[in-house]
């Protein structure tokens, strides 16, 4: 069972630079055809200072943590048994290529269902930019399957 003492635990904050090349690659990978997300001129014509960070890419930037496995290792989560249960974003302002974003992660909750066969870890992440402005809050729910308890 995941140790409940980690509820409220905060991870070491980190910063990630938003690169235009990664945003273009992401646009290609997601089939994005709106030029605002891949062409500087189109982005500027739409009023952006640079290519905008699309709605879900903040989650990808969060994975650019110096140690992406930090929470998994802290909680002893097995990669092969993990599922992404839910993901949410609350947006306060846009982010763009050239921004340097700060990520502060907190383990908000840990709970289980089905007699411990499924354990849930809720992570909240505050994102701010290089001017200290609040960009967004992310909420992710990771599900850990404990197959040996499925008959319990």
């Amino acid at each position: 069972m995941i140790d409940r003492k980690y509820i409220g635990h905060t991870m070491a904050p980190f910063k990630v630079a938003v690169e235009a090349g990664r945003l273009r690659f992401f646009a290609k990978a997601t089939g994005q055809t709106d030029p605002v997300y891949s062409q500087d001129e189109a982005a500027r014509a739409a009023g952006h200072p640079g290519l905008p960070v699309p709605p879900t890419f903040l989650f990808c930037l969060e994975m650019e943590s110096p140690d992406p496995a930090a929470i998994r290792n802290l909680l002893g989560l097995d990669y092969k048994r993990l599922l992404h249960g839910e993901q949410g974003f609350t947006y306060h302002r846009m982010a763009h290529a050239g921004d340097v974003l700060s990520f502060e992660q907190r383990i908000e909750d840990i709970y289980d269902k089905k007699g411990g066969a499924l354990e849930f870890v809720v992570r909240k992440t505050r994102v701010s930019n290089q001017r200290g402005e609040h960009v967004a809050d992310l909420r992710g729910v990771t599900v850990m399957r404990q197959p040996e308890k499925e008959s319990a």
């Binding site: 709605p55 879900t56 599922l83 249960g85 993901q87 949410g88 974003f89 947006y91 846009m94 909420r139």
Partner: peptide
């Protein structure tokens, strides 16, 4: 810029 909240369940 119109987006305020965006949540999904997988």
């Amino acid at each position: 810029s119109a987006l305020r909240d965006f949540n999904v369940r997988f």
